[in-house]
Simulated assay, not measured.
Amino acid sequence: MEFLADYFDGISARAKHVKVRVLESDRVIVLEPLDDVALSEVAILPSFNATIPFSDLNIQPKLGKARRIIELPEGGTLEAADIFGLDALISQTKETSFWRYLHYLENHLQWVFFALVLTVFAGWALLKYGIPLLAEEVARATPVATEKALGEQVLAGMDHQYGYFKPSQIPQLHQDAIRKQLVTVCSKLPSGCPEYQLEFRTSEAIGANAFTLPGGFIVVTDALIKLSKNDDEVIAVLAHEMGHAHYRHPFRQTLQGALAGLTLAAVTGDVSSLASGLPAILLQLSYSRSMETEADQYALNALHTSCIQPHVFADILARLTKQAGVDSVPEIVSSHPDTQARIKPFNQAWQDCPI
């Protein structure tokens, strides 16, 4: 058995044309120069008219209809259109069988299409289910102090570097009154509120809004306070945000975004998408339906223990939805297209509290 091949010495990109004779009985190959190889080139070819044992050869697996590559000792390689079963002579191991089967699959379009569909489905399942579960476990194992340090950096960036916020114009007495009422609500909860820090800001970019950053930093904008008809509506929104802080939703969402970005970068090889600022990412993230439900239930319980009628949350949520434009939906209403179904539990009156 013999075949023609191009020899590369591993130093020069120039190929040397050779003939490869396969001696099956001796389990060796012999390289012979062809007539068009100059005598000066013969000297640098490996062991001409000598033998190279099968054990010193490493044959790379088939890749479609690409030329086969045989790695030789001391860095040389052979490339051939067909090696006529040399790989079968060298090894009959399971590994060889695997690569032979893989070569069969990649040369049949229906199996290639099936593999593509399976890959897309696996990627979707990883992003939708795997990464959220992993993010939850990582968040649970991360110290609160670490999360708080992240929140401080993000808030500082929003205040200065990214210019989302300006100092609040709400009178200090009004701010203090809201803070005091929120402390009262927290004191009546059986487990109290999580550690938090309430921040008042004005922002033309996000309008009437309230959201929570990692570490319990709750930001409420002047526009939302002005939109509310009373402080009970503001407290209801803050109770919802307190629910996000309690369950560490912002940190989990941040981890999910980072893990998803790393996964996509690993698959596509594009790491430039990870260079965007974390504040912009946080503002664009939408909580999952289950996270919003948890935060809503936390707010409902907080309003009940403080005897604040729950319809105040429904009222301001409906007002926010009505006011919001297509491109400026507040975070608190962005992840639920069916606002009416979401606020249904709040359209009630506590029977054990004065109306």
Rank of each mutant, 00 (worst) to 15 (best):
V18T: 05
R21F: 13
I29Q: 09
L31H: 11
P33G: 04
P33F: 06
L34T: 07
D35I: 03
D36G: 07
D36P: 07
L39D: 08
E41M: 14
I44P: 01
F48T: 04
N49R: 11
A50H: 03
T51R: 14
F54K: 01
S55C: 02
L57S: 08
G64K: 07
K65R: 13
A66M: 11
E71Y: 07
P73R: 07
P73S: 10
E74I: 01
G76D: 01
A80Y: 03
A81R: 11
A81L: 10
A81H: 03
D82A: 07
D82G: 04
D82E: 04
I83V: 06
G85P: 00
A88I: 08
I90V: 14
I90F: 00
I90T: 08
T96I: 07
F98S: 12
F98Q: 09
W99L: 04
R100I: 03
Y104E: 02
L105N: 06
L105P: 04
L105H: 08
H108M: 13
L109F: 02
W111K: 14
W111N: 10
W111Y: 15
L116S: 15
V117C: 11
V117P: 03
F121D: 08
A122C: 12
G123M: 15
W124R: 14
L126I: 15
L126P: 00
Y129L: 13
Y129W: 13
I131A: 08
P132S: 03
L133D: 14
L134F: 13
R140A: 13
R140M: 00
